[in-house]
């Protein structure tokens, strides 16, 4: 009896979660369905719950891959460049800082760590106008560099690398020193390879942050050829637009690679996107 009861609880609970999951994934499925519907109708009426599956077609995707989609692929390219560049730069700099904060006892290290925690708390929106002014002053408006700049030394990544390095064996550094390795050699040749999982987690965090970043690119990017995906897609949202084919199929093509990456590297996504949790 008790065993049977337990089984029923399990089945009910699983059914409940199945319903929740269906609700949670409905928007994503809707987007995929929408990308195969006539787009002019979508913008006017919204997506209908009732439709004939036989009317679905890939016309919108043909549009993306035709000449019409040229600016979309330009945005895609820009997003790839900005996100890729940011991953390389921010991992390089943030890991160095986090590593030093964890592995060395030096004057001021505590102050610097407190500053890292402090800037972690400062909302970017407050710094936004002066930074924008700075970009104008330095003639960096409408460049990839301007988009990347605020995230290059990410305090959240510094914090994560520091926490990760605290768990690494310091004895390795000592024995490398005896072997005549320089301090920089110790980091690049011995310790950095041990930090692999933290690099993976931060690559995902920084990559996704940059891939989805909107407000700052909206400010510093001016010309259509320089737009990143979110900024570009947002321009298609206007009621006067006539590129709705691109809007829906383009949105699908924006999230599909991320979802695929997620399915393969779930562990790193989870540790990367729940960084703050390492403290709690």
């Amino acid at each position: 009896m008790g065993k049977n009861n337990k089984k029923w609880v399990s089945i009910l609970l699983t059914a409940l979660f199945a319903v929740i999951t269906v609700i949670a994934l409905t928007p994503v499925v809707s987007l995929i369905v929408a990308s195969m519907r006539p787009s002019s109708e979508l913008m006017r009426q919204g997506l209908s719950f009732f439709f004939d599956p036989a009317t679905l077609d890939l016309g919108n995707y043909l549009a993306v891959f035709s000449e019409e989609g040229a600016s979309y692929w330009q945005w895609y390219m820009n997003s790839l460049i900005v996100s890729g560049g940011l991953i390389v730069l921010s991992l390089f700099f943030s890991s160095m800082v986090g590593y030093a904060l964890a592995m060395y006892n030096f004057k001021g290290s505590r102050v610097i760590f407190l500053l890292v925690l402090f800037v972690l708390m400062v909302p970017f929106e407050i710094l936004m106008l002066p930074l924008y002014q700075m970009m104008i002053g330095l003639s960096l408006v409408d460049t990839y560099f301007a988009v990347m700049l605020p995230l290059i030394v990410a305090p959240v990544a510094v914090f994560f690398f520091r926490q990760y390095c605290l768990g690494l064996p310091k004895e390795l550094m000592e024995s490398a020193r005896i072997d005549g390795c320089t301090e920089y050699g110790i980091f690049f040749k011995i310790m950095a390879p041990l930090m692999g999982p933290s690099f993976a987690a931060m690559a995902i965090l920084q990559g996704l942050t940059s891939w989805n970043n909107f407000l700052w690119p909206l400010l510093v990017l001016r010309s259509n050829e320089m737009f990143t995906l979110p900024v570009g897609l947002a321009t298609l949202l206007t009621p006067y637009g006539n590129n709705y084919e691109l809007l829906f199929s383009g949105s699908v093509l924006t999230i599909v690679p991320i979802v695929i990456l997620f399915l393969f590297f779930q562990r790193f996504f989870i540790s990367g996107l729940t960084v703050g949790g390492v403290k709690g």
Binding site: A24, L25, V28, P230, L233, L237, V259, F269
Partner: peptide
């Protein structure tokens, strides 16, 4: 349940 977190606000908003 984690998949929605992968979308940007813009794409999610379009949906």
């Amino acid at each position: 349940l984690f998949i929605p977190a992968l979308t940007s606000v813009i794409v999610a908003g379009i949906i």
